[in-house]
Design a protein around this nucleic acid. Structure first.
Length: 423
RNA sequence: GGAGAGGUGGCCGAGUUGGUCGAUGGCGCACGCCUGGAAAGUGUGUAUACCUCAAAAGGGUAUCAUGGGUUCGAAUCCCAUCCUCUCCGCCA
């Protein structure tokens, strides 16, 4: 969530920037500031009340010691009055705090000034593209046919075991999964990221801190008995490692890479978007996360973008990088780069990574702070990106590399797969 | 799952016949003294949030797992929840 101090000091800027995300924040900002003013007044009244109560308690103690029962009892009466007033004030304060907080969490993060205007996919700006789009001719097969032709991924079997969107990987398909995971994790480790294996289930506090709750409740699988959520991305447990921490400036940069399975209910999806590997309920992803000093978070974002570029390049896939427009960017992001690979039989671009700087938006909700060189406590910046998500990479690899002899594995992967062809 | 013990500041650890306890002490850390330099020694300081204040200083409030209760007053008493440890049971 946004920092309250920013709203107090520069409400106009907030309103102006949020308009880029097509949010009219005028009314909300006004209400927040009203609640804030009210809250502070109430707090002052309550504090004064409690101060007097504490004073009386001390005096009563002394009077009893001196045996002055009558005076002590008189003071007790005053204390009872204060207590009733304090209860009311305290309830009012809680209500105001809740009101303010509830309003504050409805405001998305401010988009970075470089964010393109617009709200449609065509308003996203392609800032880079690379690689040849292969001409596969007329007989090219989409990946969902290739997977059954070579018997490497079984969608129907997944339906039998669980349901749609839970494919079963077999033989060379399973091996390819392991190869990609190891390749991505190793590349991350080589780039200085600490490898993390997080839990795949998190508690309510964690889901709230990274913003999945309360908004995206229906997008997560939930274990009722223990009130745990299956993670939709490793971002959730990994970022939560740093929840409620007060870091030192020398702790930066924090760089983590984590492989995990991800679970998403994807309620409301349909059509060609969910065909084959395009959208699954369970999938594999390697995520990179950085916790950074605010002065260096944008440099870190560029680093992460370069890292992901390296991965896609080594896989020899044609790709492009988009800077997302305000309306297409996530609630929490300040600046996002999307990576898309071209899946040549489907003839469409598939998003395989989203690299974002959240600035202090997540850190504020999570209370992730650090002491700067002057001893002041400030919010850290958080960033994350997929590096990479497997299914669509697999879809593009299968489609783009299909030949009459089989499917060719890119050179960089061969040491991991142990084979050069899927046959 | 059953029985028991316990959760105090960055860490360890006092404090549980309720009373100036945000909390003795030690370690760690920071700065200073000492030293040619260091170690040892020694001195001082060392939580977080909110409010107040133009700012700093200062002041107020809250926080001893979390939430509630008793009381003029709670780290200390009561209740609930969460978590940790030990033993038993079960088990990859």
């Amino acid at each position: 969530m946004l920092e309250l101090s920013l709203l107090r000091e520069n409400a106009e800027l907030v309103i102006e920037r949020l308009a880029i995300k097509r949010v009219d924040a005028r009314e909300t900002v006004k209400k927040i500031l009203e609640a804030d003013l009210n809250r502070r007044e109430t707090q002052k009244l309550l504090d004064d009340n409690l101060a007097e109560s504490n004073q009386i308690a001390r005096e009563v103690g002394n009077l009893f010691k001196e045996g002055r029962q009558q005076e002590a009892n008189d003071l007790k009466a005053r204390s009872a009055e204060l207590k009733i007033a304090a209860r009311d004030l305290s309830e009012k304060l809680d209500a105001l705090q809740k009101e303010q907080n509830d309003l504050l969490v409805t405001l998305p993060n401010l988009p970075h000034p470089e964010t393109p205007l617009g709200h449609l996919p065509e308003h996203n700006v392609t800032i880079y593209s690379e690689g040849e789009i292969p001409d596969l001719g007329e007989n090219a097969l989409p990946h969902w046919e290739l997977t059954s032709k070579y018997d490497i991924i079984d969608f129907e079997l997944g339906v039998k075991l669980t349901g749609a969107g839970f494919p079963v990987y077999k033989g060379q398909g399973a091996r390819l999964q392991r190869a990609l995971i190891n390749f991505f994790v190793n590349e991350g480790v080589d780039a200085g990221y600490l490898e993390i294996q997080p839990p795949l289930m998190v508690n309510e506090a964690s889901a709230y801190a990274t913003g999945q709750l309360p908004d995206k409740d229906s997008q997560m699988y939930h274990a009722d008995l223990d009130n745990f959520y299956l993670i939709p991305t490793a971002e959730v447990p990994v970022t939560n490692i740093y929840r409620d921490l007060l870091l030192k400036e020398t702790d930066f940069p924090i760089k983590n890479v984590a492989y995990s399975q991800c679970f998403r209910r994807e309620a409301g999806s349909y059509g060609k978007d969910v065909r084959g590997l395009n959208r699954l309920h369970q999938f594999d992803k390697v995520e990179i996360v950085q916790i950074q000093h605010p002065d260096r978070s944008y440099a870190a974002l560029e680093d992460m973008k370069a890292h992901v570029t390296g991965l896609v390049r080594k896989l020899e896939l044609p790709f492009r990088i988009l800077r997302l427009c305000g309306g297409d960017m996530s609630f929490t992001s300040a600046l996002t780069y999307d990576f898309e690979v071209f899946s040549a039989a489907q003839k469409r671009w598939l998003e395989v990574s989203s690299v974002s700087n959240f600035e202090s938006f997540q850190a504020n909700r999570m209370k992730l702070r650090f002491k700067d060189s002057t001893g002041k406590t400030r919010l850290a910046h958080t960033l994350n990106g997929s590096a990479l998500a497997l299914p669509r990479i697999v879809a593009a690899l299968l489609e783009n590399n299909q030949t009459p002899e089989g499917i060719r594995i890119p050179k960089a992967l061969v040491p991991y797969t142990g084979f050069e062809w899927i046959k």
